[in-house]
Amino acid sequence: MTLDVTGLRKTYESGDEALKGVDLTVDGSETTAMIGPSGAGKSTFIRCVNRLTEPTAGTVELDGTDLTALDDDGLRAARRDIGMIFQEYNLVERLTVMENVLTGRLGYVSAWRAFRRNFPPEDVERAYEVLERVGLADMENKRVDELSGGQRQRVGIARAVVQQPKILLVDEPTSSLDPETSNTVMRLLTEIAAEREVPVLINIHEVDLAVDHADRIVGLHDGEVVFEGSADDLGDDALDRVYRGGDPPESREPTASESEAVIEDGAANDSVVRDGVVSADGRAPDRSTSGGS
């Protein structure tokens, strides 16, 4: 399975150029993290892939099908193969956990069956299995608005996974969660993706989480890809380019030492690195709420 994005542009009606021609290929079953400051276009990029936001120009090919050329029905069918996980979970709050998970199967049932909550038994069985996998066994009849943030994001993951997608798009999965839960959620995501051999594209502004969990990192700055490589390649210069657009950093010293720490021992220096990134990004990690665009 391959996601092949070429020359993706998005100019909003306000005249903001969110994406200025992005090329990106995701294939195999690797986890790709897209990092960048807020406003870099990370969310816009992900939303353009399944056309929740209409791209202005460029192509998005999923296994050779150009999604940007599809009509409504074709797009609906294509969306079934793309699992999406949202920053604010975007679960239907007044429905039960099971109903939310089964939302992932809506593309395969008629509106009447969906209305009667009469899903095929294999879908229900699959939903149960996925719920067990994400650690929400026996929670199926709870209403989502009774759950904690971490539990909600697990439901969000289950909803995307039950689609049996060809790719998972993940938009800032941790920005509404505390650091510990963030880590668990990221681990769960990458594990599930590996088990099911599905590639994952994750937007994330916390560099340490990206470094810890992703196979590959793409740095976005002001609508352009300014870095692409493995976590090990993400050095001081690269971070500069991503977060400051390559301008000479004002406070060279602390950033340098912290970035070295990333390269030498990313996991052990979580908090240091996070602080470093925060100062570059200008906001605190566990209170930040807004995504790329």
Partner: peptide
Amino acid sequence: GQVEAVRAAGASSTQVLLYG
């Protein structure tokens, strides 16, 4: 956002109405 999530799963507009 809730509506969008249902739409992103490939639901038809009737289904979006019913679930979102």
